[in-house]
Amino acid sequence: MRESARFFGQFAALLKAGLSVQQSLSMVGKDCSPALQRVLREANLKIEMGQDLATALEPYPHYFDRWTISLIRTSEYSGALGETFERLAIAAEVSHRRQRLYRSIQRSIFLILLGLGALLFLLTQGGTIFLLQPSFWLMILVLVVGLLVATRLLGSRSMGQEVLRSLPQFPLVGGIVQARAMLYLTELELPLRCGVPILQALQLVRCHIPDREMAAGLAIASHQIQAGKTLSQSLKGRLTPLAAQMLRTGEETGNLEGMLEKVSEYYERDLECRLKQLQGILRPLGIIAIGGLVLLSGVQGINSLLRSLPG
């Protein structure tokens, strides 16, 4: 993700400096991985043969997914290629920062589960001999695998929203779900800035976002906009009061893209704050769990030593 952000940012800077796509592509990515450099060289050769940038990059979904290719193709026709890559760089950097929070939360949950599991064995076995038992380490392996899968689902776009919705709706979890849903909606900003008509932009975003409820809402909104309603009216009941008011203001002032950007900034900060709050709750619990394990293990070891002494 960090590598993608660096590439998008460098490419946007070269394009905005007045260089052609082919010149920019030949100069960018010098500090990227060899694999990405090879992809860029191959894409440059295809552009020399007459292909457009989106078509040249399309065979490499590991670096350029369908959403990115759609935006590049649209911005090539609208002349907003530099701005599009600049926005993609910002989005990739934000995503990278968010993934770091998810990994920190993952480590805290692992420490909590490890501590609780070991404490359970310690209390039921009455000693530290369980550390030599295969069943204990099998349990640890299952916990690690389960935690890795759960964290990947939480951090991924494909399942994160559904996983969060399945959890008990504590205020903190509910706030995370809400912030993510609003961020999915604000992805409408980029195609609109590329000059894509609102109905086509809704279709692009609907096929891109993993939030099924929001995607269904955008499908309904498309039909209502065709009937003459505004975007904020067609999404009534699916937006937070703040987001609804900001969208109405953007529509009234003719600056819907700019207002979507402000909504995105607000909920990005809100999501990051809530993830840090969750991190702040889980980290001390992990330390307490491991500390309790060490304390009980020490007490058990001292008791065993005292019992082994003569007399």
Rank of each mutant, 00 (worst) to 15 (best):
A243S: 11
A215I: 10
Q125K: 09
A179G: 05
E252A: 10
A13N: 05
T230Q: 01
L148W: 10
R269T: 07
G29E: 07
V294C: 13
S95I: 05
I72G: 03
A5N: 03
I220V: 15
C194K: 10
Y267G: 05
L295F: 14
L285F: 11
G82D: 09
P34C: 06
S166L: 10
A243H: 02
E48Q: 08
G79Y: 08
F130S: 04
I105R: 03
L164R: 14
G146R: 09
S232F: 06
P191K: 06
P284T: 14
V173P: 03
L275A: 01
I290G: 08
Q300P: 06
L122M: 04
L185I: 09
Q10T: 10
I69A: 07
G237F: 08
L305Q: 03
Q106D: 03
S26I: 02
T128V: 15
L120E: 03
L188Q: 12
P34F: 02
A56V: 07
L88G: 09
G18H: 08
L256Y: 13
R248Y: 04
S70N: 15
E257V: 13
L143T: 05
Q125M: 12
A227K: 07
R38Y: 08
K236A: 02
Q233H: 05
Q277P: 01
K46G: 00
T253M: 06
D211I: 14
I176E: 06
S304H: 08
G311T: 03
Q125H: 05
L260W: 06
R307A: 14
G175E: 11
M1S: 13
Q200C: 10
I198S: 09
I129V: 11
F85D: 09
S234I: 08
V28K: 00
L235T: 03
K16E: 15
Y77G: 08
A227H: 00
L204G: 04
I290S: 04
I290L: 15
L275Y: 02
V173R: 10
H96G: 06
P191C: 04
R6C: 01
L278S: 05
S304T: 02
T84E: 00
Y267P: 03
A216I: 02
A244G: 08
R212G: 11
H96M: 03
R100E: 15
